[in-house]
Nucleic acid binder design. Sequence first.
DNA 1: CTGAAAGCGCTTACAG
DNA 2: CTGAAAGCGCTTACAG
Lengths: 360, 360
Amino acid sequence: MRPRQLPFVDTAGRVTLRTIAALSDVHVTTVSRVLNPATRSGSRAASPKTSERIRRLARELGYVPNPHATGLRTQQSNLVGVLAPRLSDVVFAMIYEGLEQAAGARGLHTFVTNSRDDPQQRRDKTEMLLDRHVDGLVIGDAAADGQFVDELHGRGVPFVLVSRHAGAHPSVTCDDYLGGRLAAEHLLDLGHERPAVIAGEPFASTGIDRTAGFTDRYAEAGLAMPQTWVCHSHFDVQGGRSAAAELLKNGARPTAVFAVNDFAAIGALGPLREAGLHVGQDLALVGFNDIPLAAELPLPLTSVHSEMHEMGRQAVDLLVERLAGRPAPSRRLSPWLVVRESSCPAPRSGRQSTAVRTLT
Amino acid sequence: MRPRQLPFVDTAGRVTLRTIAALSDVHVTTVSRVLNPATRSGSRAASPKTSERIRRLARELGYVPNPHATGLRTQQSNLVGVLAPRLSDVVFAMIYEGLEQAAGARGLHTFVTNSRDDPQQRRDKTEMLLDRHVDGLVIGDAAADGQFVDELHGRGVPFVLVSRHAGAHPSVTCDDYLGGRLAAEHLLDLGHERPAVIAGEPFASTGIDRTAGFTDRYAEAGLAMPQTWVCHSHFDVQGGRSAAAELLKNGARPTAVFAVNDFAAIGALGPLREAGLHVGQDLALVGFNDIPLAAELPLPLTSVHSEMHEMGRQAVDLLVERLAGRPAPSRRLSPWLVVRESSCPAPRSGRQSTAVRTLT
DNA sequence: CTGAAAGCGCTTACAG
DNA sequence: CTGAAAGCGCTTACAG
């Protein structure tokens, strides 16, 4: 297909601007101008005839600019750095899928990295990303104290937050507070007066807001939650297991459990069952995120649905706006409740003693 | 800390080779030589005194070479492209975590992308990666027919396969055939004569080998598996659900089920339960990969453990070897069986009729 | 041991 | 409308 011997290809045999220039008998400058129409505003890049010839050649030869050369010259890499707590958390994996899709559609590439919510790793990985000259960052592991992102902002690094917000920095999040309220409303409707909360990490706005929305709504209904019925946890199965065990050890005998994360909800299943509680019968369990697994569990899980792909997509949009110097107001996506078999009404006996010892 | 006005910083204020050259009063050439000792073999880069001064300055000023400049000059990017079927599959997310870690340790950066096992996307994403001038590829979505990777090989693109093998291309995989045998041995030990297999995607070596190992081992025990008891599936919960439903519809009434993927195993739980089978009591269920969730399920899942992080790490090692022109023999990591509560002996009644209609 | 020169592939004022 | 020149930041023979 491609002619054997092209002039001025690069070391790897790739077509360069010079290849096209030689073939169309103009200067590389002209080729560059034609192929980068965005730059020009007033005068045209070249005569229609020349432009057409150049474009056709570029297309036929599959010319793609060398990103190193472009990056070096323009000081812009079309690279986005992504910080995730961990990609093996499917919530972030899905956010990343959305990010990647949106980035690809805009000709951007992404570097993803896992910080494990460890301050040192967060710092190191961020520097690596910056050393690679990314144009901006999408930060999915922001801590609620905002310290690190404030610093970054101070250094003039462009970024947007995703999933978690912090301070006034631009972010794309789920309306987690609303999500917490939805969960509360659902359980109130079912007559649950004594819910417990598996509250997630204390440093993540997601867990904080979901818990606040939930407890606020209960407070509005005149039902206060004892502190010992709200237990922090990691955002994974093991975390949910520990938290549930902790709750039960503290004497909680809830009729409902709200876990701010589906994996934590799944992790709670074991201890709850061992305590003689039957999820979906005498105990209602509600998770958060509505990961694909939630619907497919042996006992399908009621969950607050958050749009993870969409969050990733919009985070890229927002970063692009920000990089273009346009205003980038934060966005908050509305979640909704998906009711499944893990929900059930409160047992008719009404509220139970909190002093009952658990089995195990 | 850093002096206000450094000479010859780049547009973004970054320290360049020229900054250090000016400050240490030598030519940039010398600085480059000192900071890239790998290149030199015979003569020294500079006098000990000069070298020390340069290195100290570089350290103090936090000099990092501009990757675009280096990339342009050396035609080497220190970039690795990673193709995954989908990162929201935790198996690949974990492989990627291993990859990222090993790559970081070697100063490499990774671009990850999801192909969804779609040939067109695989092609497009690969070209995008190549257009970004990655040094090599780690391919996690190879199809067993090897067509695409053969092409890539023909084009001289350096790559290694991970998780799935194809043809004779260098790969880091789990010994899936052995894993299948281990599952079979376990179920044979428990007296199961009539197992069914949820076999995964027919185009992935993982599913193929695991199934082959399993059925071969059963054949050696004189027990042949009817074709209708082996059902292909997607590698996710929904896939396992469908496959299990299909098996039961075909009249299978197994005493054991081997799913070549943990998610597929989890997906099978629903239909099995609806058919009146009690996993862990009258039906043994065995998965594959031993994802973290497996141990934490309400009914913990017996699974064949594969080292996902390690696979990712070694894939990077192998690619680095390959890029250095050194021999890169494929590696096959040995899996092991982890027995949990989803295992149980075959019911004493022995083999059951395959004609029994299921409930649903 | 050190420096001057060339060049990787591109873009961007600046002329004409 | 088109081209010549300079330069992004680095590395690599090649001199001396």
